[in-house]
């Protein structure tokens, strides 16, 4: 089956529910649809009680390379699992808390492949796709540092 790859890098907000509905309807032969939404949290730090509230976020990106890198990750996912379809949406620009940042959807015959491919896409996207977050609090605006946990998670998929 041909895998249509829907990849969008956009400034505009999107609605994950509407994207899921559209994605499901266009994959009527798939028994499994898995989605992941990454949304902007409203604090930074180890937990909400001790963390600092974040009022806004600016997402920098590398136009051209971002699309290209996501397409490469999508093709890699396709080569690893029998997917009927997949979709990746990633925002850039200004965001406010609870706004979706990233959306990944995978469709396959059975859930195992859909779950695994969605997790792989997110893990690799976090360490390879050229996006950078800058968080604004009441006191300052700071670039987010790379998380060691993200690097470890991505390494699980190395081959």
């Amino acid at each position: 089956m041909t895998v249509e790859i829907d990849i969008r890098v956009q400034r505009e907000a999107f609605e994950p529910g509407a994207e899921l509905t559209r994605f499901s309807l266009q994959n009527s032969s798939s028994g499994a649809v898995c989605t992941f939404t990454g949304q902007m949290r409203d604090f930074r730090g180890p937990d909400r009680a001790t963390g600092e509230p974040i009022t806004a976020m600016e997402l920098d990106h590398y136009p051209g390379m971002a699309e290209r890198q996501l397409a490469e990750l999508a093709a890699d996912a396709k080569s690893r699992w029998p997917l009927d379809d997949l979709c990746i949406i990633h925002r850039f620009g200004k965001l406010i808390p609870t706004e979706p940042i990233v959306f990944v959807a995978t469709a396959s015959a059975h859930r195992g492949d859909a779950f695994a491919a969605a997790e792989f896409l997110m893990d690799w996207l976090k360490t390879k796709a050229p996006f950078w977050k800058k968080e604004t609090t009441a006191k300052s605006a700071e670039w987010v540092s790379e998380a060691a946990a993200d690097v470890e998670r991505a390494q699980r998929w190395a081959r």
Partner: peptide, 10 residues
């Protein structure tokens, strides 16, 4: 050629 910090998207 582009230079940047480790990526932090997603």
């Amino acid at each position: 050629v582009a230079f940047f910090p480790p990526v932090t998207g997603g």
